[in-house]
Amino acid sequence: MKNNQNTPILFILLGGLILLFIIAPLASMFLATTPNQLFETTQDQEVIDSIWLTLRVSFLSTIFFAIGAIPLAYFLARTKFKFKKLVNGIIDLPIVIPHSAAGIAILGFISRDSVLGKAASSVGLNFVGHPVGIALAMAFVSIPFLINAARDGFSNVPVKLEKTALNLGASPVRVFFTISLPLAWKNILSGLIMMFARGLSEFGAVVIVAYHPMITPILIYERFGAFGLKYARPVSVVFIIVCLVFFILLRTLSKEKESNNA
């Protein structure tokens, strides 16, 4: 280890304590779970179904909302308008409000009494207690991560490159798909993974919109409430392993981006 910046030893000690604070609870949970418990959990159909449901719904909501979020991010990166700061603030709102409150807001928006709920009911669909409702709740709390990352990515693309492409006869749509999007792609990909990972871990908003079908964070909560820590722990460990896979993927991509920018 090289301490090139001459960081004070005190900073390293304090930083170490914070790292320990993150690692210790997770490590103790892993150590408290026997391989046998883990194996049994991976064979539990309810756990398998809930993990697949969580992965599938979070993935699909990420892809679906990206279709609108990426153009919005591009617009925010490229356009100056009067209430831009307000719009940026609105986008960050889901991060700062309590997620149970976000769940209540979404429930009001999609319940059978709402315009959207009535429209869905007319085609025989009820968002409450449905994977679509889960997807909406997940997207609500996680979409700021994608918009912010994509906006930063587009902001880093020199406007001059886009103008050069226009000057060479390309249409604005072609410029977006051949210049802006590929050059901002690493940021967008990080944002997509972050949104997906954040959707996976959402509990507060989803539990209000749809207790059933049960996503894994709710299943963990239910097992804890019904059977106690011993039964909730192995499910948590399995789900954390699944989340870690995506976390490591995200960190690897970010690292690549840093080395490319260096």
């Binding site: 001059k160 103008k163 050069t164 226009l166 000057n167 060479l168 390309a170 604005p172």
Partner: peptide, 11 residues
């Protein structure tokens, strides 16, 4: 529009 002008520029 820029793309309609047929004016090429090298920066």
């Amino acid at each position: 529009k820029i793309q309609k002008r047929k004016v090429g520029i090298v920066f």
